[in-house]
Amino acid sequence: MTFELSHFTAAIVFAACASTVFGITQRNHPRDMLRYGAYCFALFVGGVFVASWAMWLLKH
């Protein structure tokens, strides 16, 4: 079984899974877990956009 993910989709799946684990393991209460997981996800995805634009600027 093989499948093809685009670079962006691969980054989003990675961000979702890593944020889930970070949220659950780094906070004590469910509400804080959810908040921290969302925060990590936003940082991951934001980092993807920043890195993408940085690479685009380097190329041009």
Binding site: T2, F3, L5, F14, T20, V21
Partner: peptide, 21 residues
Amino acid sequence: IRGLLLMLAVFIMFFAGLGMQ
């Protein structure tokens, strides 16, 4: 719930990695 979410996260990452060869 925590166990299930952790299991899903690790399983998805592991098998997605295998799926991407």
